[in-house]
Amino acid sequence: MSFLTIDNATKSYGSVEVLHRVDIDVQEGEFLVLVGPSGCGKSTLLNMIAGLEDITSGTISIKGKSMNGVHPSNRDIAMVFQSYALYPNMSVAKNITFGLEMHKVPKAERETALRDVAKLLQIEPLLDRKPGQLSGGQRQRVAMGRALVRNPDVFLFDEPLSNLDAKLRVDMRTEIKKLHQKLGTTIVYVTHDQIEAMTLSTRIAVMNGGFIQQLGTPKEIYDTPANLFVATFMGSPSMNLIPVKILEENGGLVAETTNGLGETIKLPFAAPPTGLKDYVGRTITLGLRAEALTDPDGADSKAVNLVTVKNRVIVMEPAGSDTFVMTEFGGQDCNARMRADVQVAPGEDVDFTINMDKVVAFDPETEDRIV
């Protein structure tokens, strides 16, 4: 049985349904990230788990017990907010232990828990300070300490890193990952940042318009997106989308399109999805990640089906460990991820290698992946 179960949950405001029939099972020790654009319903769902929002229909259960109608204080959850929500007139130590004090936990237990959490989060020198004397990263650690000290069933994080600068956000992301690996806690984490989602999670629920678009591991979400929304939302740069015509040649299937030189090119499939044969003679959308479009020397040596084509460089963007090169397929700008020391220049015609093992096919009308 799952540790946290969201069963056919909906949320309506009046006659407007904003969250539609959500089904998610979270196992004990799992790190689930809810990711999606602003207004997709992810924070609403988190608040429903916390009890801060009523559930309109369906059930939310923790450890087999329904939480419908249960007050937030009786749910054994701890929440870390975007705004930290620290008491400015209390010391760090008092902020961390205040919840325990309200629950009548004996002083000796509170002090032991405080010492353990302060050591874990490396905030021991800060315990006598007030929140106003702390940096953003230190405040976030205190907010996490206040949650950790309670040892709840489920931790809920609501965009906890969005107020931090870019470097600190990366550092805190690593700290949260290390913390989860060390403690094995069950976490539900909300973010609009797909990099956070990919790096932190054991599973991701991609949301849009109040629906779960796809639920899966980071690898499943990245390699086999369920639809065009997931394909373009997850990954940086986002997946290249190329209109191609499916043809049958020599008993196999090929994708026909054009390169940036106006030439017709054909890309053979080694192991096409079963449903692709129904699209022979029709135009579909071919999805291709930037790293699957590269220079010949940078191509995956283990790939079974590599196709090299001549194409024109439009823009070149050195990025330290990689060089991003923009070219064109099917009238669409496409990003290629090449080696850092690749020698190419805008306007130059060079060889691009496509890893056809990694392409994903989408129906342009339904926008769903063809399987």
Rank of each mutant, 00 (worst) to 15 (best):
E196R: 02
E196L: 08
M198D: 01
M198G: 05
T199F: 03
T199K: 03
L200F: 07
L200P: 00
L200E: 02
S201K: 07
S201F: 06
S201D: 10
T202Q: 09
T202V: 06
T202P: 06
I204A: 11
I204H: 04
A205R: 10
V206E: 03
V206T: 02
M207F: 07
M207K: 09
M207N: 05
N208V: 05
N208T: 03
N208F: 03
N208G: 00
G209V: 14
G209Y: 04
G210P: 00
G210V: 07
F211T: 04
I212A: 12
I212T: 04
Q213N: 08
Q213S: 10
Q213M: 13
Q214E: 13
Q214G: 13
L215R: 06
G216Q: 10
G216S: 07
T217M: 13
T217G: 09
P218L: 14
K219A: 15
E220N: 02
E220G: 14
I221N: 01
Y222V: 08
Y222A: 09
Y222P: 04
Y222W: 09
Y222S: 07
D223C: 03
D223L: 09
D223I: 01
D223Q: 14
T224Y: 12
A226P: 03
A226H: 03
A226Q: 01
A226W: 03
A226C: 07
N227G: 09
N227F: 04
F229D: 09
A231F: 05
T232D: 15
F233N: 13
F233H: 08
M234S: 08
G235Q: 11
G235F: 07
S236P: 00
S236L: 09
S236Q: 12
S236K: 15
S238G: 15
S238Q: 15
M239S: 11
M239V: 02
M239G: 09
M239N: 08
M239I: 12
L241A: 13
L241E: 07
L241T: 14
L241M: 15
L241R: 07
I242M: 14
P243H: 10
P243I: 14
K245A: 09
K245Y: 08
K245L: 09
I246V: 15
I246W: 01
I246E: 05
E248H: 06
N250E: 14
N250A: 15
N250M: 02
G251S: 08
G251I: 12
G251D: 02
G252C: 04
G252E: 07
A255I: 15
A255H: 04
A255D: 01
T257Q: 08
